[in-house]
């Protein structure tokens, strides 16, 4: 046994090998399409009765009310809470904060009928920004992504090129989308995004 096998395994994000190609598209499109992985974000699945005491407890613990309107996101400085269903949310935080968040949330809902699960490894996040971000996603997404229908603070679980994704509009100051995709689909979704982006790149050979 060598020494390095005894080291604890460092987490590796699913799209770590795509960083160079994402950066190349961003450069070659002159920023019209910005692609970047936001690796290893803390993600917690929270399931509880939105009308019950557990929802109040979570609001106090996070300083953030879980959104009850379907397909909306609530933001605080550190966190985002995405509506996934009438009794299900995804709380997203900075990398490395999952264990602490899980502990805080579990303590808050202790004794209530609720579930808090660290699902950070389930999905990875791709930032899709730039002036043509909406056109890029529209190539494979059946949703109406016009800001009138899907602006900042909206989220939706839908399909992108037939892969299930969770899409969220960023806030007003930074237009674009967060695209959360299952780790096992991440390579496929990344390849699809890179292929769809060739249209917005002056010299497509520069990104392959």
């Amino acid at each position: 046994m060598t020494a390095d096998t005894e080291q604890p395994l460092a987490p590796v994000s699913p799209l770590v090998r795509y960083a160079g190609r994402f950066a190349a598209v961003t450069r070659a499109s002159g920023g019209a399409v910005r692609l970047a992985e936001l690796p290893l974000l803390a993600q917690l699945s929270v399931r509880l009765d939105a009308k019950g005491p557990a929802a109040e407890a979570v609001r106090f613990a996070l300083g953030l009310a879980l959104p009850v309107e379907p397909d909306t996101v609530a933001f605080s400085d550190e966190l985002a809470a995405l509506w996934l269903g009438p009794d299900e949310w995804l709380v997203v935080g900075r990398p490395g904060s999952a264990a602490g968040l899980e502990e805080r949330l579990r303590a808050a809902v202790a004794g209530e009928h609720a579930a808090v699960t660290d699902v950070s490894g389930q999905r990875t996040t791709v930032l899709v920004g730039g002036a043509r971000a909406r056109d890029l996603l529209a190539h494979g997404c059946p949703l109406d992504l016009h800001p009138r229908a899907f602006g900042p603070g909206r989220c939706a679980q839908t399909t992108l090129a037939r892969a299930g994704v969770l899409l969220a509009g960023r806030d007003e100051h930074r237009p674009g989308y967060w695209l959360l995709t299952r780790s096992s689909f991440a390579g496929y979704v990344a390849d699809w995004l890179l292929d769809a982006a060739t249209e917005y790149v002056a010299d497509a050979t520069s990104i392959t």
Binding site: P70, D71, G85, P86, P142, L143, A156, T158, T159, R162
Partner: peptide, 10 residues
């Protein structure tokens, strides 16, 4: 009834 109009494939 929750998410609004969506594609049949969903």
């Amino acid at each position: 009834p929750w998410c609004g109009p969506r594609d049949e494939a969903e």
